[in-house]
C-alpha cells in the first residue's frame, strides 16, 4: 500500500493551499517584504516549538518557556551592557540551560509532574525576570546583535536561517541518534524503556535542557528583533509553541511527531496571523480564529487517530493473511 499518508502531510497541504489562495488574492501578501516578515515571525516561536516537539513526543509539556524566554533575555541584555555581545550570548544560553536543567531535574529525578513543575517555574522565572532589573526594560544597541533579529542574508531573514539550521540538527538528533530514539521510546512506553535499560531520568532531563537551550535561542531572536529585553515579553509563548507542535501533527499522547512538520506548522501559524492582519481582522476575532485553529489541530489529532485505527486493523489483517 504505497498511498500517501494524508494525515501526515496535512499541514503542508493546508499551507500550500493558503499560500496559493493568498498569492492569487492579495498583492500585499506576495511581496518579498511580507513573506520575509512571515518567516521572521515564524522563527522566534518556531525555534522554541522545536524543543517543545521533543518534550511533547516524550509525552510531557513545558509551560514555563515564556517566562524562561523573558528571564534569559534579561540576563543576556544585562550582560551585553557590560561584557559585549559574545559573552552575553553565552550567558543567555547558559540561563536557558540552567532553567531547563532545573525543570528537568525536578521532573525526572523528583518525579514531580511536568505540569506542576513548569507551572512553578513559569511563575518564578517571570518574577526573576522582573526582579533582575527592577521591572525595567533593558535596551540593546549593539547593531551586530540587532542584525540577528532584523537582518537578512540573500533575502532570507537571519532568524529563519537559524530556525532551519536548528531544525535540521534536531531532526537528525530525533531520527538518527540513540538519544532521539530514546526520546521517542519514552513517549511510547516508559515501562518498556525501563526494561530495555534506557536511563529514563537522564533522557527526560536532557530533553528539558534541550528545551531550555531552544528557548534561549528564541530569546536571542526576540530580544534582537525588539531591540530590548523586557520582563513582560512573550506572555502567550508556551501557548503558541504548543499550538505549533500540535498543528504539526505531533501527538499530545507522545511517541511520534516530526520536526519538519513543526517547521511547516510554525510557518502556517505565522501565515494565518499575517493574513488576519492583512485583512485587518479585529483583535478579538483573531483570538477566536487562533482558538479555532488550536481546536482544529487537536481534533485533527483525534480524527487522524480514528483513521489510523481503521488503517491499523486493515493492515493487521493484511499481515496476518500473508
Amino acid at each position: 500500500m504505497k498511498k500517501i499518508n494524508l494525515g501526515r502531510h496535512a499541514v503542508i497541504l493546508i499551507l500550500i493551499v493558503l499560500w496559493g489562495i493568498m498569492f492569487a488574492l492579495n498583492e500585499s501578501f506576495r511581496t518579498g517584504a511580507n513573506l520575509g516578515s512571515i518567516l521572521r515571525e515564524a522563527s522566534s516561536t518556531g525555534i522554541a516549538a522545536l524543543g517543545m516537539t521533543f518534550i511533547i513526543i516524550m509525552g510531557d509539556f513545558d509551560l514555563s518557556i515564556g517566562s524562561m524566554l523573558a528571564f534569559a533575555g534579561m540576563i543576556m541584555a544585562g550582560c551585553m551592557e557590560n561584557m559585549g555581545i559574545v559573552p552575553a550570548l553565552i550567558m543567555g544560553a547558559a540561563a536557558g540551560l540552567v532553567c531547563g536543567l532545573i525543570n528537568g531535574i525536578i521532573i525526572a529525578y523528583f518525579r514531580v509532574p511536568a505540569f506542576i513543575t513548569t507551572l512553578g517555574t513559569y511563575y518564578s522565572l517571570r518574577a526573576l525576570a522582573y526582579i533582575f532589573n527592577d521591572a525595567n526594560t533593558i535596551i540593546c544597541t549593539d547593531t551586530a546583535f540587532l542584525k540577528i533579529g532584523t537582518g537578512s542574508i540573500a533575502g532570507i531573514p537571519i532568524p529563519f536561517l537559524i530556525f532551519l539550521v536548528l531544525a535540521a540538527v534536531l531532526a537528525v538528533i530525533l531520527n538518527r541518534t540513540t538519544y532521539g530514539r530514546h526520546v521517542r521510546a519514552m513517549g511510547n512506553s516508559e515501562k518498556a524503556c525501563r526494561i530495555s535499560g534506557i536511563d529514563t531520568k537522564k533522557v527526560k532531563c536532557a530533553a528539558f535542557v534541550l528545551m531550555g537551550l531552544c528557548t534561549a535561542v528564541s530569546s536571542v531572536i526576540v530580544t534582537a528583533r525588539q531591540a530590548c529585553a523586557s520582563p513582560d515579553v512573550a506572555a502567550n509563548f508556551h501557548f503558541d509553541a504548543i499550538t505549533m507542535v500540535v498543528l504539526g501533527g505531533t501527538k499530545m499522547t507522545g511517541g511520534e511527531g516530526s520536526i519538519f512538520n513543526t517547521v511547516i506548522a510554525a510557518v502556517l501559524y505565522a501565515s494565518v496571523s499575517n493574513c488576519l492582519n492583512l485583512y485587518h481582522v479585529d483583535a478579538q476575532w483573531q483570538r477566536v480564529c487562533m482558538g479555532l485553529i488550536l481546536l482544529a489541530a487537536f481534533s485533527f489529532d483525534f480524527i487522524q487517530k480514528h483513521f489510523a485505527g481503521l488503517r491499523e486493523r486493515s493492515q493487521k489483517k493484511t499481515i496476518q493473511s500473508i
Binding site: 494525515g7 496535512a10 493546508i14 493551499v17 488576519l276 485583512y279 481582522v281 479585529d282 479555532l292 480524527i303
Partner: peptide, 20 residues
C-alpha cells in the same frame, strides 16, 4: 479525510472573508 481537510480550509477562509 480529504473532505474534512476541505471543510477546515473553507471555514478558515470563509472566516477571513467574513471578518474583513
Amino acid at each position: 479525510l480529504k473532505k474534512l481537510l476541505a471543510v477546515v480550509l473553507m471555514v478558515l477562509l470563509a472566516m477571513q472573508a467574513a471578518a474583513c
